[in-house]
Every structure is written in C-alpha cells, then in structure tokens.
Amino acid sequence: MSVEANLAATAAKAPAANASKVKMSGNGVNVFYGEKQALFDVDLNIYENQVISLIGPSGCGKSTFLRCLNRMNDTIDVCKVTGKIVLDEDDIYDKNIDVVELRARVGMVFQKPNPFPKSIYENVAYGPRIHGMTRTKDELDDLVTSSLRRAGLWEEVKDRLDQPGTGLSGGQQQRLCIARAIATQPEVLLMDEPCSALDPIATAIIEELIDELRANFTIVIVTHSMQQAARVSQKTAFFHLGKLIEEGPTDQIFTNPINKKTQDYITGRIG
C-alpha cells in the first residue's frame, strides 16, 4: 500500500483531530546522558485521544523523549532531564509528583516484549493488583479478560491463562504486554516500536488495536515504518540528531513537509 492511500484512509477515520485538548506537552526539553546531550530543546504537544507518531533515524532521541514522558529515564543513573513536561497542568518533573502514580497514568509498552516470568493471568493482573484497582476476584477476572480481549489476545489464550507468559510467541508476548499496560487503565499509552519484532499479520492486529484504543487513551508511538505512522497516527513528529525538526498533522508531514530534512527522510534520502 502506498503512503498516500493510507493517509486517505486515516484522514477519513479521524475527523475531529484538531478539536481535542492538549494532554501532555514538553517545553524546552533537554536530555543529557552524562556529558552527552541526546535531546535539544524539544517543544511538543500531545493531544488527547489522538495517536502521535515519533519518527526519525536511529539514535535521534525518539526513545529518549518517550521515556521522559513517564520518567523512565529516572532509572538511568547518568541521565539528566531539564525543561518542563506537563501532564494535565501538572509538571511531571516537579518534586511533589509521585512517580509511581505518574507511571500508572502514563503506561508504557516496550520495544522488546518483556512479559514477567509469571502466568498470563498474573501478567495482566500485575498492575491492577499493585494499584489496588479491584475489590473482588470477580472484578479482577473481568478486568483481565477485557484487557486481553482488547489486545486481541483473548481467543488465543483463554484456555491457558495459568501458563507462563514467557511461553507465548513474540507477537503474542507483545500483545500480552499491551494488555498488561491497558489493564492499569492509564490515560496516556507510550509505545516504543511495538511492532518491530512482529510479522505483518500481528502488526495489522496491533495497528487495529491502536486505532481502537484511541477512543479511551492518548497514544504516543515510536516507529521506523513510515507506512505505519501514516496508517495509525493523526500527528507526526520528526526528530533528527536530538532535535525536533518538524511536527504536525500526519497527512501534512507526509505529503507536504515544510523542512527539507523531513522531506529527505520520508522519501528515504537520509536514515
């Protein structure tokens, strides 16, 4: 499928894209790994109930930016973040913010599937359990079931919920991780190349899922596939060498980029 054809499809599905409110925003975000600066002065708005794709060549800082949004960079000792990132009015780097609560609100799906060495059920129930989200076993069961359903995994695993999640195939594991993330009912879902290890069929399932999830969540997705960005996202941001070069509605970025670098990248001249 060509990029243009996809764009047409996406545009048709996302009518009121511009009307929604800002869910998260970064203002002058700089990130340093020790001496080395990985992000330079990034300003980016993320709108509620939309999908935004972060694209750009390898090493340009997409994952770094994504990890700033739920402070996963805190786990890296040498990493230092300056600037301001806001979630619904709250500065998430404020001293008073509870990182644990932030991460419950801003969930993350990692590039490489990382199910816990527990049963499929326990994997999904993990978040709800630690946050005490359900009162009874039945409620938890329902939550697990509905999360697996929404991740498109239910049919495949409903008979073996007690078997280890690590025993699933790579694509199933990735969907399990998505189910695990949405079971916590975050407001924003960050996905770092969720399809990089998947075959086209599993990719299609996940893309469909992302489109559905948009109704309830705000989604930030990092991808190396231009087609994927065009298919699933309403907004696209292009990063290059740690700088945000250009951002805007996906169809505009792909059909009518303002910056020369963006154009070169989407037409395959740099990367």
Binding site: R103, F116, P117, H131, C177, R180
Partner: peptide
C-alpha cells in the same frame, strides 16, 4: 534478571520494593 523486567514493572507504576518482591525475587 534482565533490566527489561525491571523497566516493565516500573513502567506499570510499581515501586522498587514491589518490583523486587513480585518480579525480581520470583525470577
């Protein structure tokens, strides 16, 4: 125990001690 498991747990909003008790030690 792979760092990715720690990240996965932290990414779901678990504290360090919850991560250790529920993920790291069993693994």
């Amino acid at each position: 125990v792979p760092q990715s498991l720690r990240d996965g747990s932290a990414g779901l909003g678990a504290t360090k001690s919850e991560t250790i008790r529920r993920v790291i030690l069993p693994a």
